[in-house]
Amino acid sequence: MATVKFKYKGEEKEVDISKIKKVWRVGKMISFTWDEGGGKTGRGAVSEKDAPKELLQMLEKQ
């Protein structure tokens, strides 16, 4: 499965696309949330040019 790689608060992170729940556009950035388990929700953002095609497809479906 595809993953999204991004930096959050200076830390490199990687999230499996299948865990992503919500995707939206903020200017030229793609923001998203995912389920971290245990009732926690993670947040992240990646530039439109660095976003994997699967993430962009999720954005178009909404």
Rank of each mutant, 00 (worst) to 15 (best):
S18N: 12
M58V: 11
K61L: 11
E14Q: 03
G39Y: 05
R43N: 14
E12V: 13
D35N: 12
E14P: 00
K61I: 14
K13D: 01
K13E: 02
D16V: 13
V23F: 05
K9G: 06
M1Q: 15
I20E: 00
L55R: 00
K61H: 13
E14I: 05
Q62M: 08
Q62A: 15
I30K: 00
V23P: 03
D16C: 08
I30D: 00
K21W: 14
Y8W: 11
G38L: 08
W34G: 00
S31F: 13
W34I: 02
K40V: 12
E48K: 08
G27D: 15
D16H: 08
V26E: 14
V46D: 00
I20Y: 00
Y8V: 04
W24C: 15
G37L: 12
I20H: 00
A45P: 01
S18P: 04
V26Y: 06
G27H: 08
E14S: 05
S47R: 11
A2Y: 03
W34K: 00
K9V: 02
G42R: 11
Q62G: 10
W24H: 15
M1W: 07
D16S: 09
K21S: 10
Q57F: 07
E14T: 08
E60S: 13
F32G: 01
G44F: 14
M58H: 07
A2N: 12
V23I: 07
R43Q: 14
G44L: 04
A51K: 01
K13W: 05
K5Y: 02
K53I: 13
L55K: 00
W34N: 01
G10A: 02
K61W: 09
Q57H: 07
A45C: 14
F6S: 05
D50P: 02
K21M: 14
K53R: 04
A51N: 02
K40G: 13
A51E: 02
I30G: 00
V46N: 02
E60W: 03
K53C: 15
I17A: 03
K7W: 08
F6W: 03
Y8M: 02
G44W: 12
V4R: 00
E12F: 10
S31P: 04
Q62P: 12
E11Q: 12
I17L: 11
G44H: 05
W24P: 00
E54K: 04
W34L: 01
V46W: 01
E48M: 05
D35T: 06
W34F: 08
D16I: 11
L59I: 08
E48A: 08
G44S: 06
A2K: 09
I20L: 08
G44Y: 12
G10R: 01
G38C: 15
S18R: 05
E11V: 11
L56K: 13
S31Y: 08
G27Y: 12
S47Y: 09
A45V: 15
I30A: 02
W24N: 07
S47Q: 09
T33Y: 12
Y8H: 10
V46A: 13
K5D: 01
Q57N: 09
S18C: 11
K13G: 02
K5M: 02
L56M: 15
A45H: 06
I20R: 00
K5E: 01
K40A: 13
G37I: 08
K7G: 04
S18T: 07
I20F: 05
S18E: 08
G27P: 10
V4K: 00
A45I: 04
E36S: 08
G44R: 01
V26M: 11
I17D: 01
L56I: 15
E48Y: 08
K22I: 12
M1K: 14
K21I: 15
T33H: 13
S31T: 08
K22E: 14
E36R: 04
M29T: 05
M29I: 11
L59W: 05
L59E: 10
Q57V: 14
M1H: 15
S47T: 08
